[in-house]
Simulated scan of single mutants.
Amino acid sequence: MSLGLAAPCLAQETAPAPVDTPPTSDPRADFAIVGIGVGVLPDYEGSGDYSVSPVPAAIGQLSGYRFVLAGNRISVDLIKDGYGPTWDIQAGPIGVVNFNRSSRGSIDNPQVALLDERGTAIELGGYVGIGKTGVITSDYDRLSATISYRYDVAGVHESGILTPTITYTTPLSTKALVGLFASAEFVERGYGRTYFSVTPAESARSGLPIYTAGGGFKNWALGAVATRSLTGDLTGGLQLVGGVVYRRLSGDFADSPVTQVGSPNQWIGAVGLAYSF
């Protein structure tokens, strides 16, 4: 499963700043925020069973270019941000390591564990977007919309994933920040065939009915995140970060036998510590 909407990185998407006073550091300067957390996520996409996993995270800016690492996902914004309340054009590469059903040992459901293992997919692509700083609450809140496309280059599902996302973040004070986001995923046929279909041989082993999944609209998701400084403020020091994401599978993906023995309702939660400098 992907922690693509991982809480630690969403919380740091905007330059840390209080609601009604100027930032305490130059948002154009280089910075880095690194963290580690504990995530609770489904055993596989469509599972009703959950497991605990470590979640690394980092965000930074070098010479005006921002990068984000969120669990198994990394992206880089190759267009420099402006200063103060402004519009921001975003574009750059994105990469995801997809571990979905790559290990039977991590799947509790006995029927799904009898299906063929999938390899580890390497999904590479890019994204574009637009953001606006200074929208509702202050000069430092941020609303952004992005769309990304990535394709599996490892030969596992050999298909693409299109993901539109809307994100809003706002600082509440010099020590607290919250964010909300919504996204959806559209996948090509190879993705559905790899992760949601059941072949005759797999059906004979597992007892699940034969099923052929197609492509299209796979899921929508809503999430929230919050961060609170434990030392210093949001521009530097130790921070406590937590977030939750709800995803709802749809269409062929909700109707698949691997989901029917699990659940189309997918929850992802994470809590951790981050240090900014």
Rank of each mutant, 00 (worst) to 15 (best):
Q260Y: 07
L124M: 12
D152Q: 02
V135W: 08
D108P: 02
D141K: 10
R104D: 07
P171L: 01
I79L: 15
R118I: 04
S206N: 11
Y140G: 14
V68G: 06
P93F: 02
G242R: 07
Q111W: 02
G46E: 02
G232C: 08
L124H: 10
G160Y: 11
E45T: 13
S229L: 03
M1W: 12
G269E: 14
S2H: 07
V128I: 14
I36L: 13
S106W: 01
G192A: 11
L114A: 10
G269H: 13
E202M: 14
D77T: 14
A7R: 04
A145G: 15
D30S: 10
T167P: 00
A221T: 03
V245F: 00
D116T: 06
G236A: 08
S256R: 06
Y195L: 14
E158Y: 05
T212P: 01
K218I: 03
V135F: 12
I161N: 02
V241Q: 06
S53Y: 12
T170G: 00
I122G: 12
G119V: 07
P54G: 15
I147W: 15
S51C: 06
P8K: 07
K80Y: 12
S53T: 13
G269L: 15
T133P: 03
D49T: 13
P171S: 03
A226D: 01
G126P: 03
D252T: 03
D26N: 12
I161A: 01
V38N: 08
F181L: 03
P56T: 14
T227N: 05
E123H: 11
S103N: 09
A213Y: 09
A91M: 12
Y127C: 10
T86E: 15
G125V: 10
V258G: 09
T194Q: 11
G37S: 08
V112I: 05
T120Q: 03
A17R: 02
F253Y: 10
T86Y: 06
T199P: 01
D116E: 14
A154Y: 06
L180A: 02
L78D: 14
P209Y: 11
N100D: 08
V271I: 15
P54T: 13
S229C: 05
D233H: 04
Y246F: 09
S263W: 05
G129H: 09
P264H: 13
F67R: 13
F186K: 00
D141C: 14
T169D: 00
T167R: 01
R73S: 15
I147T: 15
S256K: 08
G105I: 00
R189I: 05
R150Q: 14
K175A: 02
D255N: 07
V112P: 07
S256Q: 07
V178T: 00
G129Y: 05
S173E: 00
D26V: 04
R189D: 11
P171M: 01
G131P: 11
Y140E: 14
F67S: 14
L238E: 08
A213W: 08
R193Q: 12
P22N: 01
V96Q: 02
H157G: 02
V241E: 04
A17Q: 04
A121F: 01
A204G: 14
S63P: 00
F217Q: 03
A7H: 04
N265D: 15
A58V: 01
A91T: 05
S173P: 00
T163I: 02
M1E: 12
D108Y: 04
S229G: 11
Y195Q: 13
S276W: 04
A121Y: 00
Q12R: 07
G131F: 11
